[in-house]
Computed example of a mutant assay.
Amino acid sequence: MARIAGVNIPTNKRVEIALRYIHGIGPAKAAEICQKVGIPAERRVNQLSDAEILQIRETIDRDYVVEGDLRREVAVNIKRLMDMGCYRGLRHRRGLPVRGQRTHTNARTRKGPAKPIAGKKQPGKK
């Protein structure tokens, strides 16, 4: 099992797909890394040599912000917004959607499960 950027990537998948298991690498960056290192798209991780895995690891370390560093950077950015007290920071602080989505209905992912309100009648009951 190949370990890149602190993540065990699956061995039986294509390299381009397996690289996406690393936080911060999506389809475009995975293809870009494969092209830089010179690995064909249909190659599987278990067919890679140790030298190729090392090349991939060095390319990612040198050119991309991934995993722990990326998570830390995002957390610092959110904390900065919250400390500043701007609108986006307040939405983060209250656990509500940040990017203008409606909250009258939906937004359950951010708000959590619905809390019942005392005295509110359920539709369809008499």
Rank of each mutant, 00 (worst) to 15 (best):
M1A: 09
A2D: 15
R3T: 14
I4Q: 01
N8M: 04
I9W: 09
N12E: 12
N12I: 11
R14F: 11
R20H: 04
R20I: 01
Y21K: 07
P27W: 09
A28Q: 15
A28H: 12
Q35H: 08
Q35N: 02
V37A: 05
P40S: 10
P40W: 07
R44A: 04
L48E: 09
S49N: 12
D50T: 12
E52D: 09
L54S: 14
Q55T: 04
I56W: 05
I56N: 01
E58T: 15
R62W: 14
V65E: 05
E67D: 14
E67T: 01
G68E: 10
L70F: 07
L70I: 13
R71H: 12
R72Q: 08
R72H: 06
E73R: 06
V76E: 15
N77T: 05
I78M: 06
K79M: 07
R80W: 05
L81D: 05
L81C: 05
M82N: 07
D83L: 06
M84D: 10
G85M: 06
C86I: 09
C86P: 00
R88D: 01
R91L: 14
H92A: 13
R93W: 07
R94H: 10
R94P: 00
R94K: 12
G95I: 06
L96D: 05
P97G: 10
R99D: 01
Q101R: 13
Q101S: 14
R102F: 00
R102S: 10
T103G: 00
T103F: 12
H104L: 07
T105E: 02
T105K: 09
R108E: 04
T109Y: 00
R110A: 01
R110Q: 07
K111D: 04
G112I: 13
G112R: 04
K115E: 13
K115F: 06
P116S: 02
P116H: 15
K120A: 13
K121M: 07
K121W: 09
Q122H: 12
G124D: 15
K125Y: 06
